[in-house]
Design a binder for these strands. Structure first.
Length: 764
RNA sequence: GGGGGAGUGGCGGAACUGGCAGACGCGCAUGACUUAGGAUCAUGUCUCUCACGAGGUGAGGGUUCGAGUCCCUCCUUCCCCA
């Protein structure tokens, strides 16, 4: 949608109320807020929590002068005495009843205007407040004051009750609305230590803590700024309205029910039948699934299912004529449970085979993009809970119990551990750099000749060695639409349209034969890969060139898995060299007996690698795992060059290295494993066990720092204690220099831990 | 507008709970071997400085013996908004 219009057809887009199908998403709101059984990333838990948006408060009923009830939800019932007007969503049922004849035209115009806006536009803060008085009044149930009822687009019919009590002294949006339309403002919370607030003069709403004023029985109470009953003023207000019988304590959620209806062909049919008498029944289990008809006519208007008589016309459970529902389901429906179907894709008696479910569920590790935080990843949780309560997992639970697994909480959540991967994006591409000549027409150039310049020719122009000829346009193609090139003019940095006429002479050196305008390359920013943008990288070609293991290892090495980034294959050669080196090292065989020294060193390097690779894989840090393996390659090669590594130590080092590589380059590791004569399969061997004693260094570098900055280093024994380390540090030339004969203020010993070596910090 | 991320060399990226910033790799430079090198090997490669040293993780402040990491203000940018 662009400017309120459909981007393809240019039709205006407006919002209409429709009858559609929903899932009761809100039913599980509280359970979905409980993340305690889950090992999920903190940002995802925060986003889901905010999305569900639980707020504590009260529902309060206002009566209109005509006797109609308007229910509102408020998190601040304590500010009820400051509610000086009400605002309804333009779509609210009561609007037509409240609107007086004088206001009718203005109200209807406003409603029509609101229907053209998106929700994001409507709720944006900081934009001009708009609204219309309905002409009607309601009675504030605690002050019994007559207050005007307005409609405004910032109130959503889909949120809460579609109506709000406006407290301009305590809510900034209400305040701006009141100021703009000259509505009454009554302060009810007086911030402590501030001059008394006056509704006529206050500059902005006060939403913070203070003391209650102008609030009848609440006067003098503390408002501590907390939410819900933890705030004394709110607790008192809830009790008061309950006693008056005008309201009750309540919890509201931002989360709304899940709209699953789509008025289009591509989706699973909603298995519902409308009977002649207007009642609804669901399609019996033995007739499921309802399948889409294959022979629909795509006319471009309306839902093709609605025009397909054979699909629509059916019979109900009593054999009487009935109509099928023609809405289809949101595609999130399928993505919410596909992983259950994966367990047994050919099982046709149920969504999944309970035997398989008992073995595999719940999913141990799930990876998915963070962009799905509040959509797929929340829908899936909801879906799982709904299936659980429908009894879909009951058979699996029984089987699970029979195998000694406790099914009690096994089906509460679909995926126990979640990690978010990033996305590899399309690479940036520079557009062709062209020189175009022809006829100027204002800012535009009607080109009779366009030539793509070589890198060399480009440099001549870019460096200023040569100025573009008069009337010519020289620069990079930023965008192309049909036969109009948008060229970034080198001379002034402005975008200049270049229209390529049909008879124009086009010269693209990289593409032999006669050229056409479609062959010009325009600039591509870094963005998601997509066919329509033409920036897709085909892994098949890379696999054909380098092999599957190399491409796999490169993808793991070249990017931060959790972040992704623009595609580039510049450093794939580093992975190719690594695998070449390993291949040759292993196949060369042991060079000889080696030395004890070399054996110890190889064991040390191998065990350091075992630690690092194991740790990295557990943290989904695949690039550092491969870096550790490359380091091991470097270390072993150095030992081989020195001639100190050989014999049994060589065998062991190769074995450990291949085992560590197995998850990363499964085919190469298996092949080398087999050529070493080791038993099939490498993927069924135990992971190498880390031995801290073998990984330990004999000597370490003690870093001496001055106020946290390194100034010297000294080699010391690995197990050095605090006193010895301080003495050794103070004896170094660097320490002597910074002390310059004086005494240090403090000497701090930082003990080593893990792979971090100890340090001494001298404070001067 | 709201919610959630991310900013580190020429480049991709390391740095576990505050402890040597730049691991590993690409690229680049110099040298070796070569008829040749877009192969291979060796050495070097954050910046400034002949050096000694000093500075440095988007900007500015703060906490700390010590900050890429924690706190505050701001800038840029990516994702999501049923």
């Amino acid at each position: 949608m662009i400017d309120g219009k459909d981007e393809r057809l240019g039709q205006p887009v407006v919002q209409k109320l429709m009858t559609q199908w929903f899932f009761r998403y809100t039913r599980y709101a509280d359970e979905l807020l409980d993340f305690s059984p889950l090992d999920w990333p903190e940002p995802i838990r925060i986003m889901q929590t905010n999305w569900i948006g639980r707020s504590e408060g009260a529902r309060v009923v206002f009566k209109t002068e005509g006797g109609h009830a308007i229910e509102v939800f408020t998190t601040r019932p304590d500010t009820l005495w400051g509610a000086t007007f009400m605002v309804l969503a333009p779509e609210h049922d009561l609007v037509s009843k409240l609107t007086t004849p004088e206001q009718k035209a203005a109200v209807e115009a406003y409603i029509a205007d609101t229907a053209r806006q998106t929700e994001i536009e409507r709720t944006s803060e900081g934009r001009d407040k708009t609204g219309v008085f309905t002409g009607g009044y309601a009675i504030n149930p605690v002050t019994n004051q007559r207050i005007p009822v307005w409609i405004a687009d910032y109130v959503m019919i889909t949120y809460g009750t579609g109506a709000i009590m406006a407290v301009p002294s305590g809510d900034q949006r209400d305040f701006e609305f009141a100021r703009k339309f000259r509505l009454k403002i009554v302060p009810v919370v007086q911030p402590d230590g501030q001059p008394p607030l006056d509704g006529a003069t206050m500059a902005e709403a006060w939403a913070g803590a203070g003391t209650m004023i102008h609030s009848g029985p609440l006067n003098g109470l503390v408002c501590n700024g907390e939410k819900g009953r933890k705030n004394p003023s709110i607790a008192a207000a809830i009790d008061h309205i309950a006693k008056l019988g005008v309201g009750r304590e309540s919890i509201n959620y931002r989360l709304r029910d899940w709209l699953i209806s789509r008025q289009r062909y591509w989706g699973s049919p909603i298995p519902v039948i409308y009977r002649e008498d207007g009642t609804i029944e669901t399609v019996p289990d033995d007739q499921l699934p309802v399948e889409l008809p294959q022979d629909v006519k795509m006319t471009g208007t309306g839902n093709p299912l609605g025009n397909h008589a054979a699909f629509v016309n059916t019979v109900d459970s009593e054999g009487k004529p009935a109509r099928r529902e023609t809405d289809t389901m949101d595609t999130f429906m399928c993505s919410s449970w596909y992983f259950l179907r994966y367990l047994s894709p050919h099982y046709d008696a149920a969504p999944f085979d309970p035997e398989e479910a008992a073995y595999w569920l719940p999913v141990d590790v799930y990876t998915g993009g963070a962009e799905h935080a509040t959509m797929h990843l929340l829908y899936s949780r909801w879906f799982n809970k709904a299936l659980r309560d429908l009894g879909v997992f009951d058979d699996a639970a029984e089987i699970m119990a029979a195998h000694g697994r406790d099914p009690e909480t096994a089906f509460d959540e679909p995926m126990k551990l979640l990690r978010n991967q990033g996305q590899v994006l399309g690479a940036e591409r520079r557009g062709d750099f062209v020189i175009a000549t022809g006829q100027r027409a204002g800012n535009k150039l009607i080109a009779s000749r366009v030539e793509v310049l070589t890198a060399e020719a480009r440099r001549v122009f870019e460096s200023g060695q040569q100025a573009p000829p008069d009337g010519a346009v020289v620069g990079e193609i930023v965008k192309r639409t049909e036969n109009i090139l948008n060229v970034l003019d080198l001379t002034d940095g402005q975008l200049r349209p270049v229209e390529v006429s049909e008879r124009a002479e086009l010269i693209i050196p990289g593409i032999p034969g006669p050229n056409n305008v479609n062959q010009f390359k325009h600039h591509l920013d870094v963005q998601r890969m997509s066919k329509s943008k033409g920036n897709v990288v085909n892994p098949d070609e890379l696999v054909a060139q380098y092999g599957a293991d190399t491409v796999r290892a490169y993808l793991m090495f070249g990017f931060d898995w959790g972040k992704g980034g623009p595609w580039n294959d510049e450093q794939i050669s580093g992975v190719v060299r690594w695998l070449h080196d390993v291949w040759e090292m292993v196949l060369a065989g042991s060079p000889g007996a080696g030395t004890n020294e070399g054996a110890r060193a190889a064991g040390r390097k191998a065990h350091q690698a075992i630690r690092k690779v194991t740790d990295s894989l557990e943290h989904f840090s695949f690039n550092t795992a491969i870096a550790a393996l490359m380091t091991l390659r470097n270390d072993l090669r150095a030992l081989l060059r020195d001639g100190t590594l050989g014999g049994a130590a060589w065998n062991e080092a190769m074995r450990d290295m291949l085992l560590l590589m197995a998850p990363i380059t499964p085919h190469i590791a298996e092949e080398l494993w087999s050529r070493r004569g080791l038993p099939y399969s490498i993927h069924q061997q135990a992971w190498p066990a880390y031995d801290a004693a073998r990984a330990a260094e004999d000597e370490i570098t003690l870093v001496i720092m001055k106020n946290g900055k390194p100034v010297d280093r000294v080699q010391v024994a690995a197990g050095i204690g605090e006193d010895e380390a301080k003495a050794a540090a103070l004896a170094t030339a660097g320490a002597q220099r910074i002390l310059n004969g004086g005494q240090p203020q403090r000497v701090i010993f930082i003990p080593g831990r893990g792979t971090v070596e100890p340090k001494v910090n001298i404070v001067v």
